[in-house]
Amino acid sequence: MIHKYQLNGYNLCLDVHSGAVHVLDDIAYDVLDYCDENMKEQPPEKMLSELSVRYGIEELKETYEALYELYQAGQLFSKDDYEQFADLMTRAPIKSMCINISHDCNLRCEYCFAAKGDFGQGRCLMSLDTAKKAIDFIIANSGTRHNLEVDFFGGEPLMNFDVVKQTVEYARSIEKAHNKNFRFTITTNGLLLDDDKIDFINREMNNVVLSLDGRREVNDKLRVTPNGKGCYDIIVPKYQKLVSKRGDKDYYIRGTFTTFSKDFTADVLHMKELGFEQLSIEPVVSDPKLDYSIKEDDLPTVFNEYERLAKTLIDMRKRGEYFNFFHFMIDLDQGPCAIKRLRGCGCGNEYVAVTPQGDIYPCHQFVGEEKFKMGNLNDGTFDQDMKLRFARANVYSKTNCKDCWAKFYCSGGCNANNYQYEGDILKSHRVGCELEKKRLECAIMIKAALADCQDEQKSTCDSDDCFVECR
């Protein structure tokens, strides 16, 4: 299977089952239409006949020969022999956990999937006792995994920061005895950040996700306090302080775009202007009936915006200006292994979420869905059958995924979105799929453009001094 497409002046071809990405000139792009899984050494007569009105016969033969070489090398129309690995998918050790340390929030964001902080379960904070049980649970269920990951989430985690600190301290005190290495992340709306919290986060958290939707008017339209006021002016200086003291440790400024802010390139650029470089803006996940939701009719506009953002990123990097957009990150040389791509995010199998009451769910977006409650830390229950069900939810068991060109990049998409929109974790959510495919097309095109940029620099400059890293 291949996926060929044109974007920003590039003719691109992804060979799905090898992962090879080819940039083609016009003739190769046209000849490819006459190739399939059963290429023969001799060029098809139909191709020579039909394309000879536009190209010379010898050039057509030469081009076909080049494509046939790729076919023989297993880099074009390569075979799908991954299903055997999918069949082996069984329960894996739990290696990561979302701890909902707070089911309370000091914001009332209109689009919050956590029902404005409490996941519909009433406002409460996790006790240290429950948090310690969560740490014990992941250690006990992680098998031989060395790296364990814990994300402090909510609600607003800073509303229960003493328990965050004590939980980290507890995990650090026992990790070596169990041959584990904890990597912590925290996601915050920033309102309660102060110098002490910034120092602790920068010392202990491998990654920090800072919520901001972009421009002041965009952010303050939906990210509001209980009395309806925006939070932009409070949080931005705190984020700038945190990031300035963070050194080279990971962070993301992470926003949500809605149908009201489909011009989100301006929000990404605004984040860059504020001094941030690691940026992420995701489409809102919500009931399609709500006025801010992204609907099927919005897709053409959003697609154009992703293209605009991709071109902007390329232009800026050519000028030596850098920012990273999370959903355009793609490693074509050494991305995740095929097994990881089959497993996907690991929701319900390698990854679980726990609530202040000690309830266990497949992930942070399933919290509150009673039929997906997997167990409880306090009574020691854990539904292994549900774990197996999620373990078997991979690209070969999901409707529409097996024959999709993007399957090894989206890994079957989001189980929670599938359930919320389609009522079944195995049924792909169409809008989410289309958005993911567009982001992938842009990400691959960016790689082609930056490779071109490097080639041009090599050919136009004899000195290393003028080299701008197109990374």
Binding site: D15, H17, S18, H22, L70, S78, C337, I339
Partner: peptide, 16 residues
């Protein structure tokens, strides 16, 4: 007519 951007190793990674 063709520039390949990467050294594809997806199949190798399935085994390893």
């Amino acid at each position: 007519h063709i520039k390949t951007l990467n050294k594809a190793n997806l199949k190798e990674s399935a085994a390893k």
